[in-house]
Amino acid sequence: MTRTPETLLDHTCSTLDGVRAQAPLVQCITNSVVVNFTANVLLAIGASPAMVDIPGEAGPFAQAASGVLVNLGTPTGEQREAMLEATAAAHAGGTPWVLDPVAVGALPVRTPLAHTLRDLRPDVVRGNASEVMALAGSGAGGRGVDASDAVDAAVPLACSLAESTGGVVAVSGPVDVITDGRDLARVGNGDVLLTRVTGGGCALGAVMAAFAAVDDDRLVATVAATTVYTVAAELAAERATGPGSFAAGFLDALATVDADTVRRRAAIS
């Protein structure tokens, strides 16, 4: 497939319809701060969430799931074990999985874990510029969960990381960059209110797993997930009076956004 902005937009719309038709089952091994929000985001977009993060269950469930999210936000000892179990099972069973290396860099527990998971070849890596650079082996990470590096500074390392994993790397920012190491797409939608709601980035990783379950082209699926998600954020922001009303409106927008709206508003380049 020739990946022009036009073809990416066409596949974005068809993949959105596919998610709603298939209701992919997404296993989320994610941080305790965002569990509820992530589950509600998946339900709103038309997927089915499953927060299965117990060793002994995580592996078998990953083989049965449509997609898996591994988020390093609050990596307890038991959850770390479940992450390794689930990713090994996902790889063996052909289940697409997303790695969100939250706050990696200088922190001594999550950083080596992130590198171990990276070497297990995630289908998608999603993070801010500082997280992606640290995961690629350069930089000390950001300020907690906030990036201290610009998106464009991370692009060369994102391409290198994608080549080494054989998957896709999505760098979040004012304009999101998605690359498989060969092709590169930018998505210019979104709103700053998305950064003022806990879980705004984390839940996007779960949506990427849902879209990857529907489209085998990981770049196409990741662009589609990012575009739909950020268009919904714009729709919610237009009606919001602050972060609280935005959060509720965002779930409504995810549930109601359609292909025609995405086609009118998408800023894919």
Rank of each mutant, 00 (worst) to 15 (best):
G144R: 15
A114I: 01
A259P: 02
A106G: 01
D183I: 00
L113S: 11
Q27A: 04
A65S: 13
R143P: 01
S164D: 13
A103G: 05
T256S: 15
H115E: 13
P122C: 11
D252S: 12
R239I: 07
S148E: 15
A236M: 10
Q63W: 02
T111H: 07
V207G: 07
T230I: 12
A259K: 06
T195P: 05
A147F: 00
W97H: 03
S66W: 05
L135K: 13
P60F: 15
L193M: 14
L107E: 14
D100G: 12
V125L: 11
A114R: 08
G244P: 02
V151G: 07
T198W: 09
I178W: 04
F61C: 07
I178G: 04
G167L: 10
R263E: 05
A162P: 07
G205F: 04
M133C: 11
V155Q: 13
D100K: 14
G244F: 11
R126M: 05
P55Y: 15
L157C: 06
P112F: 00
R3V: 02
A39E: 04
L254C: 06
A47V: 07
D100S: 13
P108S: 14
N71C: 10
G56P: 00
V192Q: 12
S160A: 15
P101L: 02
G73E: 04
Q63R: 08
L235E: 10
A233I: 14
A50L: 08
G56R: 02
R265C: 09
M83G: 04
G167H: 08
A259H: 03
V33K: 01
A237M: 10
T222Q: 05
D176R: 10
S14G: 02
E6N: 05
A90H: 01
E234M: 03
A23M: 08
A103M: 13
L254N: 06
V124H: 03
V26N: 06
A266T: 06
E85I: 06
A248R: 11
V175A: 11
S66D: 15
A64T: 12
D191N: 15
L194G: 11
G188S: 10
G190L: 03
R20D: 01
G77F: 15
V34E: 04
D180K: 14
E163S: 11
T87V: 10
S48D: 04
G249F: 08
A90L: 04
T30V: 02
D149R: 13
M208A: 13
T195M: 12
L117Q: 12
T227H: 08
L219Q: 10
L99G: 03
A23F: 00
E57H: 15
F246T: 07
V197H: 08
A213K: 10
A82G: 03
R182P: 00
G166M: 08
L194C: 08
G199N: 09
A236E: 09
V175S: 14
V124P: 06
F61P: 04
D17M: 12
N36L: 09
A255M: 05
G188L: 01
G93A: 09
R110M: 00
G46P: 06
L184W: 01
A153L: 09
R143Q: 13
A209R: 07
L84F: 06
A150T: 13
T241D: 14
